[in-house]
Nucleic acid binder design. Structure first.
Lengths: 218, 218
DNA sequence: CACGACTTTGGATCGGCGATCCAACCATGC
DNA sequence: GCATGGTTGGATCGCCGATCCAAAGTCGTG
């Protein structure tokens, strides 16, 4: 019953090592073999602190999301805070691309609950009527996670191929522009905008579209 | 050069078998072993028509999405067509939960391109100014895929546990209501709405929020 | 201070997976 | 009718998550 010394392994240590491996090598790099190497231990020790791989991924995700949500300073204007929280989530998923995939793979874990709580509370503070509050929160949360996840997937694709960002964008834009303009008129036009666009700005523009739509519900 | 008889295997046959396995047993059920059993063949034959597992998943996803996009009748009112397309995607991902995960895992494959094309075109027809068209399309596509994917994840969770839908919702609602109302006031209130809510209606409500926000850009 | 119960650790091992490789097969063109 | 090249089925490889167990370490108790 008394506390043992936490000298050896601990869940926190394992989660920290897992986060490092995931950030460095992507989701496929996180194996129990790699963990045993990084932590200089065996399988049994790890499985003693962690139920399985899903559990480990969930714990690492909770850790990252909790860091974002507690790190955001609450400003007076709920609308500004909302944009700050959304951008914080966007940046966190950009920095840890595996978080986005995990959130959509297992939406019932604590991390997503905390996100709903935070965003729902801010929408409430913004004056959204209760009748529409839950639709609005669901829509906004899903938008944030969807765009952030796609941005992360693109970033993953970028690091795996050579060349820097502008080269990559130019390559995709060329590919889109090459499509039959009869069959793909929209994508064709979008190619022109691709080079000059900023992911974070476009993300915030989407948040603003949402907030504008929500304001109409008042 | 001349056509061999397509008596034996073909990519289409493999994709169809894969879709059946995925729908029946979820993503983890799709293994090359299961495919050889269903198709009464060997590994080599399958790998001859399909590059690898990612390729197979992408082909199956393209197949499902193409079916949705070609199946929607174009109505006169772009706004109505937009809601129909969105709902079609929602229902397709609900019926084939693995599609949602695949779309967010590899967003550069043709299926997502077709979705952007369709939704972007409809927004254009709706009169969204070009300056805002790409932000709006990105936001709406991500909302649709995000909500549909989460709904599918919940549906997956439901089939894996016993009990029917209302029992499951009641269980989640009870779990949410049990949370500390100081720490989770929003989720706490949301629990009351959980029982009476309809996923498709809530989804469409989110689409409407979006369209309202987009209308403000005009 | 010693002993036994319990926790924690490290590694051997298992079944299953995606992928590769190769020998046998067979419709077609010369 | 025979060689050619696209097609097929299955043996095999290396790696993964997970399980299991014996050894080592840590405390409460008498």
């Amino acid at each position: 019953m008394t506390k043992r010394r936490t000298d050896g392994l601990s869940q926190e240590l394992i989660v920290k090592a897992a986060t490092g491996i995931l950030d460095a090598g992507g989701e496929s790099a996180l194996t129990f073999r790699a963990l045993t190497t990084h932590l200089s231990t065996g399988y049994g020790a790890i499985y003693h602190h962690v139920a399985n791989k899903s559990d480990l991924l969930a714990a690492a995700t909770d850790d990252v999301i909790a860091g974002v949500l507690t790190g955001v300073v609450v400003e007076a204007e709920p609308r500004e805070t909302l944009r700050t929280v959304a951008l914080g989530l966007f940046d966190a998923i950009d920095a840890h691309p595996w978080v986005g995939a995990q959130l959509s793979r297992e939406p019932w874990r604590p991390a997503l609950l905390a996100i709903y709580e935070r965003i729902g509370g801010l929408l409430d503070a913004l004056g959204v009527p209760e009748r529409a509050l839950f639709d609005a929160a669901g829509a906004l949360v899903n938008y944030v996670l969807g765009v952030a996840g796609q941005n992360a997937a693109n970033a993953r694709l970028l690091t795996s191929s050579e060349g820097d960002r502008s080269v990559f964008l130019a390559k995709v834009a060329a590919q889109w522009a090459q499509l039959d303009s009869e069959e793909y008129p929209f994508v064709n036009k979008a190619a022109a905008h691709l080079r000059e666009h900023d992911d974070r700005e476009q993300f915030l523009a989407g948040v603003d579209i949402f907030l504008a739509g929500i304001a109409g519900l008042r």
